[in-house]
Design a protein around this nucleic acid. Structure first.
Lengths: 272, 272
DNA sequence: CTGAATTATTGATGCAGATTAACAAAAAAG
DNA sequence: CTTTTTTGTTAATCTGCATCAATAATTCAG
């Protein structure tokens, strides 16, 4: 059952997603082999179509090889909130697989290429190679952190700061998987999408972009964004890149379990 | 190394947190034993103090036995955004353990009791019992989903809806761990905290609470909240409880890995 | 190449919610 | 019980951004 899969999958499938997983843990060649065997082949999704992630036992995990998507929710009043922009190297299907009702949907913002595997199979792999379970945890935590930053964005930043922060965040995420230059990138996203991601109206997004342009912080050529002065815009946006640690390797197999006394934490109050 | 730990920990430590983990996977008595052995003892944190989660290899996971906390970030302009309210049964230390710099902090909103274990030890346990790695993934995904809902809240709901949704969400989370009645609960949280969680000003929170009271949706007695008409307020808030699925058990040890053809997804567009 | 559909841009108007400032009511501290 | 600190409540004013509306510029489909 190996040869077949590998042939369909091709030889350099591992680029984006394995690179992503390797940010969290070290994987051996045989680990990667095992993962590769789970893949059911490449899927394409057209721009504007939903990326389907059936619930229950048919649930799938999809690794984004190429293209952009957005996870969103539509309220009864018709407003849409985009919760996350999905970029190459991301995994689609995590929340979807875990919740009965798909309370969130995912649309392709561009044509996409996905590598799909069944959640059940991935879980089985985790039992054989626990490393993958941990990698999944890290991935999920990383995603949660992205969401957390998004909350700060929407909750307490001004419109201008939000837009700036949004651009910087996407840039950083693309750069992390080698899809962006040092100070520029392509953002295949309309202003309407940005407005739904940032909780602003389209006209206002437009004005803020204009302001960033006029103040010389960014340059726009179609949907190519470049940062004129990275420092300055980072400062404006209160942006700080997330530096994540890797999963501790089990060097000491079942580490010394020293029992410690319970003690009160003694630190200062948490307000500024 | 067992007996000692167990004595300190006490006999019914498992109530809240194990109940929480059991929402995701089935655990045997011996699984629980192993987890228990990791615990370093109970910690107390006083109201208004930071819950410390050292980074790097000293990272700790803390299981909240009792009390409330808030994960937050303070911007340079002095504004604070609370990203998540932490309730009994939650785990503190996930993002903190994974990121180098503690970009978020956690304050105790009330006096708290925590059960602490070293992240390294938990990781080691995951290698021995992969189930725990998966449980951690589910926990993290669940948390991410909570965050996602919070983004929708702040991004696209009116102030009134936000406050209503906030109350309903906390209520649901408390009810899930047996800390709330069917239509009432205690919310040990000041209006300032609510304002920082919901991205609103304190006076406005106050008005919205008053409005909910006047319209007969809630009753407030000090910090005891009760819902007069659950349906109505749920409707107002666009609230739908999250129903999560459990981790598929590896019934078929290394499930049949059938290779499937790559095929394009064919569904309709994702807008309303 | 041409009309249709998105997407971007700009302006005028209104309102939701911020801000500021008191003051009342509770807790907490002493 | 008194003082201090924290929390809640209310009101007056101001503003950032939504909303609505119209037009230009693109992109897409045939």
């Amino acid at each position: 059952m190996q040869g077949l899969t590998r042939k369909i999958v091709g030889d350099r499938w591992d680029s984006t997603f394995v690179a992503r997983l390797r940010r969290y843990v070290e994987f051996s060649a045989s680990d990667i082999e095992d993962l590769r065997d789970l893949l059911e082949g490449e899927q394409s999704v057209r721009k504007r179509r939903d990326v389907v992630v059936e619930g229950g036992s048919h649930a799938k995990l999809s690794f984004v090889k190429d293209g952009f998507a957005a996870r969103y929710k539509v309220l009864r009043n018709g407003k849409r909130q985009i919760v996350n922009i999905i970029v190459p190297g991301d995994v689609v299907g995590l929340p979807g697989s875990f919740l009965d009702a798909a309370s969130f949907s995912v649309v392709a913002l561009t044509d996409m290429k996905l590598e799909v595997c069944a959640l059940d199979d991935y879980v089985a792999l985790c039992y054989r190679r626990p490393k993958f379970g941990l990698a999944l945890s890290w991935l999920a935590v990383h995603e949660a952190t992205t969401y957390a930053e998004h909350i700060v964005d929407i909750g307490r930043r001004t419109a201008l700061e939000r837009v700036a922060h949004f651009l910087l965040e996407i840039h950083a995420r693309l750069a992390a998987v080698g899809r962006a230059a040092a100070t520029a990138f392509d953002l295949p996203v309309s202003q309407e999408v940005m407005s739904d991601a940032l909780g602003l109206s389209v006209p206002h997004i437009n004005r803020m972009l204009a302001e960033l342009r006029e103040s010389g912080m960014i340059a726009l050529a179609g949907r190519h964004v470049s940062f004129a002065d990275l420092r300055r815009i980072q400062q404006l946006a209160h942006f700080e890149p997330a530096r994540l640690t890797r999963i501790p390797t089990p060097s000491r197999p079942a580490a010394a379990l020293v029992t410690k006394r319970a003690h009160a934490v003694d630190r200062h109050v948490g307000r500024a």
